[in-house]
Each structure stands twice: as C-alpha cells, then as structure tokens.
Design a protein around this nucleic acid. Structure first.
Length: 291
DNA sequence: GCGACAG
DNA sequence: ATCTTGTCGC
C-alpha cells in the first residue's frame, strides 16, 4: 500500500522543475504589501498561519500535512486541519516544494472554501524562501500558489551562494547574545538572502529567516520574533506538534498489543526457548484511552 | 573515496 | 523528516 516515494527524478524532470521555479519566481514580491506589515505593533494583523508535514516512521511517502491558524497577538490556535497524504516526489535539496507544496496548497484551499474568514494573513513555512539555490524555496513557492504573504523559517543553514556553515559562521552565531539578535546572510552577489535570528534566549541555534512572498525581510524577521514563544514560531511549532499527534493517534498504535494476542500465543506456543521466561505471567492491558 | 544535503 | 531516554540546567 504505502509505496515509497519515487526514486531520484531524471535530469529531464529536474530541468522542468528548474524552469517552473524560474517562471514562478518572476511573480515573486519581496516587499510589504499589507498595511499591518509596516505598523510598529502589527495593528490589523489578527490571524497567522503555519504549515508542516510529519512523516510516518518507516515510510518516506506517508505523511500528515497540517495547516493551523493562530490568533494574533494571543497566538492561540483557532483552526486546525490535519490530513494524511501520500507523497510522490522524493526529497531533494533545492526541490522541497515539489514534494510537499501540493498538499499545503490543498489545505489552504479547503480553508478558503469552508471558512474564508479564517484564512491567515501570513503563513510561516518550515523551510526557506529566497535563501535557496535558485532564489525560490518552498516558502516562495507556496506564497505564489496561494497568493498569501509567506515567511520562510529554516532550522539549518542552506549552504548556497557562498554561504557556509563554517567556523566564521559559527562564530557569528556565538556572538548572538540576546533574544532578537540577528546577523545578515549575504550571498556571493552581495545580496542579503536572509537573517540568522536568535529567536529564544535559551536557544544556541538560530533560525534562518527569509522572504517567502509579499513581505519584506525586515517585517518577516520582526514578525517571526513576535511569534516565538520557543525556538520556532508558534504557528510552525503547532503545525508540527499537531501533525505528529495526528499520526500517533491514527497509526501510532493501530493494534496496541491487546491482551488477546498474548493469550493466543499461550494457546499456540510456538517456542519456549531455554528456561527463563522474561515476561512475568501478569498482564499489561494498556488502559484504553478514548477521545 | 569524500563531503553535501531546507524537510 | 525519522531513528531516541535520560539528563543537565534554570
């Protein structure tokens, strides 16, 4: 049933994907387009969204795609959509969107149809925006396909355009002192591709923020700061937590070793190796928890 | 053969 | 992404 995702796509496909990224990139807007983005207190911002995918452990093709919407500035979850999906494309650095974005777009469209008033005014995406091999990461891709402002938030530095996670980079990280401290990620051409941000006082590893669509880097970093209760922005963190929980509740224990299985084994003793029986004859029926 | 490699 | 418990620290 759960086919594995496809093998590495042939060069021909990668060429098509690169062309598509280039075409969509022409539509990219890397500045603030909304009034609330320029407001010192983000007045007018009421809903922030987050998306993420979590995978079933042994299966690189089965995942739970989740979209959550939080109230701003309270950061309380007001909408959640989790759904199991079967991925087709394999993961390839530089082409993450072709693997994950179709399911995220689906989730956004479901929301737009069913509860348009709940559509978020900005989406936090787990991955990069313009900090990308061809300047068009998954956050840009999702932004263009949904026409929503998007912010790319990665947990690891994507080493592109001269950016390296070398000793100097690590030293800059070490110099990030207080929560909110940043340093620019400057590409070979001198362009600022993103910002490393210490998003939480107790986090030694920074967040790598970059523009997805319809927001400036300055606003993106400022809003990311404003949405972090812990290391990652609350919308993404909630999407992550809830997608994992959904998997655990769904496939986590389809058949939690019921007592019946144990009695069957006793009735049909297959093997009784050696003398020591490790299992105390007792039972361990996990209290069925409902809801 | 070795290093890179968002999620 | 996932494999993984306890553990050190505030």
């Amino acid at each position: 049933m759960a086919r594995e995702a496809a093998e590495k796509p042939p060069e021909e496909i990668l060429s098509l994907w690169k062309r598509e990224q280039a075409q969509l990139k022409a539509l990219l807007v890397e500045q603030d387009t909304e009034a609330w983005q320029r407001d010192p207190a983000f007045s007018g911002l009421q809903r922030v969204g987050g998306v993420d995918l979590s995978f079933v452990k042994g299966d690189s093709a089965s995942a739970c795609a989740s979209l959550v919407v939080l109230s701003y500035p309270e950061l309380e979850v007001v909408y959640e959509d989790c759904s199991m999906v079967n991925l087709t494309a394999p993961y390839m650095s530089g082409f993450l969107a072709f693997r994950e974005v179709p399911f995220l777009v689906d989730a956004v469209q479901r929301l737009q149809e069913k509860e348009p008033h709940m559509v978020p005014q900005v989406l936090f995406v787990d991955g990069n925006g313009v900090l990308h091999h061809r300047g068009f990461g998954v956050a840009c891709h999702l932004g263009i396909l949904t026409d929503l402002p998007c912010i790319g938030v990665a947990k690891k530095l994507l080493q592109v355009d001269g950016l390296e996670n070398n000793a100097q980079h690590k030293e800059k990280i070490r110099l990030l002192q207080a929560e909110g401290d940043t340093f620019p990620l400057i590409g070979g051409s001198g362009t600022v591709l993103g910002m490393a941000l210490k998003s939480h006082s107790h986090s030694s590893k920074p967040l790598y923020v970059s523009v997805g669509h319809r927001i400036s880097l300055e606003s993106a970093v400022r809003l990311t700061r404003s949405c972090c209760r812990f290391r990652s922005p609350e919308p993404v963190r909630q999407a992550d937590i809830r997608s994992r929980d959904y998997i655990r509740r769904t496939l986590g224990s389809p058949r939690p070793p019921p007592e019946q299985e144990r009695s069957q084994k006793l009735q049909k003793p297959k093997v009784c190796p050696k003398e020591g029986s490790e299992e105390p004859a007792g039972e361990g029926s996990p209290p069925e928890t409902h809801s």
